[in-house]
C-alpha cells in the first residue's frame, strides 16, 4: 500500500509547528487508507537532532537529508531534494505545509513530479479509499471539495488548522545520503532583516490581536501591544489594510485578501469594520472577538463574541482582566 509522505519544516535545526501539523494531517489520511506515514526533514548539518519527536504525531519513519547547502531554505535545491525523496518511495499522498516556505516549495515539487497540487486545504478525508480535500476559494466565500486525480496526490495544508495530535508512531530516524549540487541553488539571499523586535509573524501565531482604522493613530498601538503581552506567548499583532495603506503598520502584519490568510485559535479584531476582503483572511479562525463602537459593523456577523464600545476604554480593561487571569494562574 502506497504510504503517505509529510514534509516536515524545520528552521535552524528546530522542528516547526507546521511540521507537527503536516505529520498529524498525514497520519489522519494514512489512518483512512490503512497505511503509514513517512516524514522528511531537510536542512543543514544537525537537522536530524530533533527529528525524532515527529514519531509522537504518527510518523513511522523520518528521513533526514542534511547538507551544508541546505542550511537555509533554497527554493530550487529544496524542491529537487523533496521531489527526489518522493520519487524514491511509493507514496499515494504527499502533505506539505502552506506556510510561506511551503507555498514557495510545493508548486515547484508538483511541477518536478508532474502532478497537480491542491493548495491551502483546510480539510482532508479519505472516502472510499480516495483522498478528498476542502479548499476555500473566492477568498473564503465558497468551499470547494476537490479530488486530486494523480498519484501521488499533493496537498498543502493551511497552518494552524490541523492541530498536532499525539498518535505515537515508530518514529525511526534515518539519515539519507543525498547528492546536492551547489549549482542547484539559483537565488541568493543577500540580506535578511528580522521584524522589529523579533516580533512573531501573524501566519505563525496561535493568537492574533489586530488593529484597524478605529485605532485612530499609529501612536495608539501600545494599547494593542499591552494586550498582546498580557496574553503571553504565541501572540502576534495584525492589521487591516486601511492602517497598512496609511503607513501606520508594516504590510507583513496585514490580514486579508491582499495580506495574509490566518487561522489562529483566537482572533481579536479591534476597530476593524470587517470588510469582505478582511474577512477573507481570517474567517477560518477558531474563535473571533470583535471590539467596535458601531453595532452594525459587519465584523459582528462573524464574531463569536463582541463588545460594542469605544476601544480606547474597552481594550485597557480587557488587558487588565487578562493580566488578572494570568496572575491567578
Amino acid at each position: 500500500m502506497a504510504k503517505v509522505f509529510a514534509f516536515a519544516e524545520q528552521r535552524g535545526g528546530e522542528i516547526r509547528s507546521a511540521a507537527r501539523e503536516a505529520v498529524t494531517a498525514a497520519a489522519k489520511v494514512a489512518g483512512g487508507l490503512g497505511t503509514e506515514v513517512k516524514a522528511l526533514v531537510v536542512g543543514g548539518p544537525g537537522a536530524a537532532s530533533s527529528a525524532g519527536e515527529l514519531g509522537r504525531f504518527g510518523a513511522a519513519g523520518i528521513e533526514v537529508v542534511e547538507h551544508e547547502a541546505l542550511s537555509d531554505y533554497q527554493p530550487e535545491a529544496y524542491a529537487r531534494v523533496v521531489a527526489g525523496r518522493v520519487r524514491a518511495g511509493d507514496y499515494g499522498v504527499v502533505v506539505l505545509p502552506a506556510t510561506t516556505l511551503g507555498r514557495d516549495l510545493a508548486p515547484r515539487v508538483a511541477a518536478l513530479l508532474d502532478v497537480p497540487l491542491a493548495g491551502d486545504v483546510t480539510e482532508l478525508d479519505v472516502v472510499d479509499g480516495a483522498l478528498t480535500v476542502i479548499r476555500p476559494v473566492y477568498s473564503g466565500k465558497a468551499f470547494a471539495q476537490v479530488r486530486v486525480d494523480a498519484a501521488p496526490a499533493l496537498v498543502s495544508i493551511r497552518p494552524n488548522v490541523f492541530q498536532p495530535t499525539d498518535a505515537p508512531g515508530a518514529g525511526i530516524v534515518e539519515v539519507v545520503a543525498t547528492e546536492v549540487e551547489t549549482s542547484w541553488a539559483r537565488t541568493r539571499v543577500v540580506e535578511r532583516k528580522a521584524a522589529e523586535g523579533g516580533a512573531l509573524d501573524v501566519s505563525e501565531a496561535t493568537i492574533i490581536v489586530s488593529g484597524g482604522r478605529g485605532m485612530k493613530d499609529p501612536s495608539n498601538w501600545p494599547l494593542l501591544e499591552a494586550l498582546r503581552d498580557a496574553i503571553g506567548d504565541g501572540v502576534a499583532l495584525g492589521a487591516s489594510r486601511a492602517v497598512v495603506d496609511a503607513g501606520w503598520r508594516p504590510h507583513g502584519e496585514q490580514v486579508g485578501q491582499t495580506g495574509k490568510t490566518v487561522a489562529p485559535k483566537l482572533y481579536v479584531a479591534v476597530g476593524i469594520s470587517g470588510a469582505i476582503q478582511h474577512l477573507a483572511g481570517m474567517r477560518t479562525s477558531g474563535t473571533i472577538v470583535a471590539i467596535n463602537k458601531d453595532p452594525d459593523a459587519p465584523i459582528f456577523n462573524v464574531a463569536d463574541y463582541g463588545i460594542i464600545g469605544d476601544l480606547f476604554e474597552v481594550v485597557p480593561r480587557l488587558t487588565d482582566a487578562v493580566a488578572a487571569l494570568r496572575a491567578s494562574g
Binding site: 473564503g140 465558497a142 468551499f143 470547494a144 471539495q145 486530486v148 486525480d149 459582528f300 464574531a303 480587557l318
Partner: peptide
C-alpha cells in the same frame, strides 16, 4: 486532474454573541 466535486457556502459560523456594551463587558469576555 483537480476535479471539483462540490462547491458550497462556507459553514455558517454559530451565531455570535454580544457580550456587552462598554468597558464593563471586558471581564465577562
Amino acid at each position: 486532474r483537480i476535479v471539483v466535486e462540490r462547491l458550497s457556502y462556507p459553514p455558517a459560523r454559530a451565531p455570535g454573541r454580544i457580550v456587552g456594551e462598554g468597558p464593563e463587558a471586558a471581564a465577562e469576555l
